[in-house]
Design a protein around this nucleic acid. Structure first.
Length: 424
RNA sequence: GGAGACGUGGCCGAGUGGCUUAAGGCGGCGGCUUGCUAAGCCGUUGUACGUUUUGGCGUACCGUAGGUUCGAAUCCUACCGUCUCCGCCA
């Protein structure tokens, strides 16, 4: 959520930012509602002051057994007027709030201006192209032959787009999750949390999924709960409504969770195998930072995710999203993409974003400056560290042998145990 | 799922319609004092919104939202949460 005061005082800059995101917002309506709200407040507060003064007078006279009839008459009218105005104020405030919740975050000055994904610049490339002499198989061909997963049977359980890992495939999935968690905990100093995969309306609103993207999520109407599309939702909401001492920042959490996405509107796109799923596993990194350091922390966060890919020896590149491709809540975002040799294409496995105070304002997450001073909204950031399905695709396709077996990188040895690294 | 108790500031806790501007304590912060240990004394203390001549002024906030009243932390209604007991259960 944007600060209404900022919209009021820097209207042009905010309009430009939103326009660069290719979003159309009627700021005149918003400013008009804000003006109405302030007019009502100005009027009602004068009346309330008057009421307070008279009420005090009533109390004094009563103690002295004096007559109070005239005062009662007078304030009864004031009270009625206050009632009407209170109602108007509530209406204006809820209207303004509804409007503000629909406005996306503004891009950071360093985010390149651009129309859409086709303009996203590549800012980094790492690793060597896997190109042996033999013909490369896709992860589907490899996985079916090695019985690592079973999509036809998975369909019987929940429909297409849901995974069923089997045998070494299930173990490998679990290995990757544990490897990534351990890596971030031990090497990068994150604190592990294991949240619920259901979240309520308030939590979903904090992170920006609601009210605009309700159709993207699975909903449980009976209990007014949603299945989380990412652990970002529960983890960011851990500190919802809190004021955190500045010396406790930055707070860094990592969390594994299953993620659920309806992917409405993306049918027919990337439907094969693991490229796009309704349910998948992800290790997520979430940071709560002091505003001045959030962009430094974003670079570190991105680096933390990159190191996972490097440890697994996978070729990747980093792209920076242009304003037109930036998500609703973010000010700046990097995507990490893995090269999948069998598919012969880049696959997005991580998104690292700075939301600045956008989510913090929606969720009331603030910090108290160390030397005293005004309580402020902190900055929230998150990044995948990373999502498993496409990681698995790149891993299988990069480490495939000529005979169709897969020899996994040694760093996974402790996690694969007796199953061994050689899947054949 | 059933029954009951409860919800007050960073924390504990008093407060059943108006001398509450929420007592008192703890903690925090600032200062003073002292050569008696883990001391004493004094002062101070939250958030948001509106307005502003940037000194302030005003309004609201006692779980949340409404209501009653001239006036609500206090009375009424609904909801949310916590705890205890019963039931069910991995």
């Amino acid at each position: 959520m944007l600060d209404i005061q900022k919209i009021r005082e820097n209207a042009d800059a905010v309009r430009q930012g939103i326009q660069n995101k290719n979003v159309s917002i009627d700021f005149d309506v918003i400013l008009a509602v804000d003006q109405e709200r302030r007019n009502v407040i100005a009027e009602v507060e004068v009346l309330k002051h008057e009421r307070n003064v008279v009420s005090k007078e009533v109390a004094t006279r009563k103690r002295n057994n004096e007559d109070i009839g005239d005062l009662i008459e007078k304030t009864r009218e004031i009270g009625q007027r206050i009632k009407v105005l209170d109602e108007q104020q509530r209406n204006a405030e809820s209207k303004l709030n509804d409007l503000l919740l629909q406005i996306p975050n503004t891009p950071h000055a360093s985010t390149p201006v651009g129309e859409d994904a086709s303009e996203n610049p590549v800012v980094k490339e790492w690793g060597k192209r896997f190109a042996p002499g033999y013909t490369l198989k896709t992860h589907l061909e490899l996985g079916e032959a090695l019985t690592l997963f079973d999509f036809p049977r998975a369909t019987k359980i929940a429909g297409p787009g849901f995974p069923l890992y089997t045998g070494s495939g299930a173990r490998l999935e679990r290995a990757l999750i544990n490897f990534m968690l351990d890596f971030h905990i031990d090497k990068h100093g994150y604190t592990e949390v294991l949240p619920s995969v259901l979240a309520n309306t308030k939590a979903m609103t904090t992170t920006g999924q609601l009210p605009k993207f309700e159709d993207d999520m699975y909903k449980l109407p009976q209990d007014d709960l949603y299945l989380i599309p990412t652990a970002e939702v529960p983890v960011t909401n851990i500190h919802q409504g809190e004021i955190i001492p500045e010396q406790d920042l930055p707070i860094r959490y990592c969390a594994y969770s299953s993620c659920f996405r309806r992917e409405a509107g993306s049918y027919g796109k990337d439907t094969r195998g693991f490229l796009r799923l309704h349910q998948f596993n992800k290790v997520e990194l979430v940071k709560f930072t002091q505003p001045d350091s959030s962009y430094t922390e974003l670079e570190k966060l991105r680096r933390d995710a990159e190191e996972i890919l490097e440890a697994l020896g996978l070729e990747y590149r980093v792209i920076e999203l242009v304003t037109g491709d930036l998500s609703f809540a973010s000010s700046k975002c990097y995507d990490l993409e893995l090269w999948a040799p069998g598919e012969a294409r880049w696959l997005e496995v991580s998104s690292c974003s700075n939301f600045e105070d956008f989510q913090a304002r929606r969720g009331g997450i603030r910090f108290k400056p160390q030397g005293g001073g005004k309580v402020q909204f902190l900055h929230t950031l998150n990044g995948s560290g990373v999502a498993t399905p496409r990681l698995l695709v790149a891993l299988l396709e990069t480490y495939q042998q000529e005979d169709g077996s897969v020899l996994l990188p040694e760093i996974l040895t402790p996690y694969m145990g007796s199953a061994g690294l050689h899947l054949k």
